[in-house]
């Protein structure tokens, strides 16, 4: 996204001073190319390395060459049962991660939108107070309250379930804050027009507020999906069953398991393939929602 904005700033032509303009363009592109190179290079290196055998990787480290093992490594990463109990495959981990990512993002959006709706539109006695209480939870991230959270989830019998994985994470002060600010910028007359048009609180929320917020929803969805996808600490704590592993924590697990093929070597090829797979969904989400994001920004007016 940063690359795109920079590129669009660099494009407008200044026809009269064409020479200087060309130099600045060269300079801009040099910066862009360097940045892109630094970002893509490690990924490329990993991709090439997945074509080697584990033994090769242990001996020579990451390498640029190309051997015939790439397909086999990806296939093993995706479909071969792994772990101590042989209960998990790459596809299963991918699915777990997707459930966590979507559940996390959608849950956060639903909860924070409803909270913001209540705070902004209803004459609650302590609305402002409630908002600041919610806001101060920013000071209490999961890491601080990890023991009580674990205790609560455990005693509810939600350990090793998707609900246990997602629910403790979906309360979001940031989301509530962004939606609150957005709702406050919606003109009061729109609310009044809807009241006269006979739209009750629920209809107003669904028919008017949600469609108007689609830009915000897309933006928060991107951020929250990636955030949820990258969760490591909480899934590590709450899921002991290997069938519940997410990609992000599963990769490490696989490296720890030693290769079965003769020598006792960690399965680096498979791990690298998995880490590449783990990158794809967040990238797709960003690319997909980016077009929405821009569309929402340019088309909607309040």
């Amino acid at each position: 996204m940063t690359d795109m904005t920079q590129a669009s700033i660099a494009t407008p032509a200044r026809p009269r001073r064409s020479k200087r303009f060309r130099w600045s363009q060269v300079f801009d592109h040099a910066i862009l190319c360097t940045g892109a190179f630094f970002m893509v290079f490690p990924v490329f290196l990993v991709l090439m390395t997945t074509s080697f055998e584990d033994a090769d990787i242990v001996r020579n480290g990451l390498q640029f060459g190309f051997e015939g093992q790439m397909l086999e490594n990806f296939e093993a990463a995706m479909f071969e049962a792994a772990g101590f109990s042989k209960a998990i495959t790459g596809t299963r981990m991918l699915m777990n991660s997707l459930i966590l990512g979507f559940g996390f993002a959608i849950g956060k959006i639903v909860i924070s939108m409803m909270a913001a709706y209540a705070i902004v539109y209803f004459r609650l006695r302590f609305a402002t107070f409630a908002f600041w209480i919610i806001f101060t939870t920013l000071l209490l991230p999961l890491e601080v309250r990890i023991l009580p959270s674990y205790e609560a989830i455990q005693s509810l019998g939600l350990a090793n379930t998707y609900s246990g994985l997602i629910i403790p994470l979906i309360a979001s002060a940031t989301g509530t804050f962004f939606f609150r600010q957005f709702f406050r910028s919606i003109p009061e007359e729109l609310v009044e027009a809807a009241r006269i048009d006979g739209a009750g609180p629920i209809k107003f929320f669904i028919d008017i507020l949600v469609p108007l917020s689609r830009t915000m929803i897309a933006a928060i969805f991107i951020i929250m999906f990636v955030y949820g996808w990258n969760q490591y600490l909480w899934p590590t704590l709450i899921t002991t069953d290997e069938g519940m592993f997410t990609l992000v924590r599963g990769i490490k697990q696989i490296v720890q398991v030693l290769s079965q093929t003769g020598a006792m070597i960690p399965e680096y090829g498979k791990a690298l393939a998995l880490s590449l797979i783990a990158m794809i969904p967040p990238v797709l989400i960003v690319i997909f929602f980016q077009s929405w994001f821009v569309k929402g920004l340019t088309e909607s007016d309040k």
């Binding site: 007359e189 729109l190 009044e192 809807a194 006269i196 008017i208 909607s300």
Partner: peptide, 14 residues
């Protein structure tokens, strides 16, 4: 059973 026309029209933008 009233209808109101607002200063800024208050049309639903979407």
């Amino acid at each position: 059973n009233i209808a109101m026309v607002f200063q800024n029209y208050a049309l639903y933008p979407h």
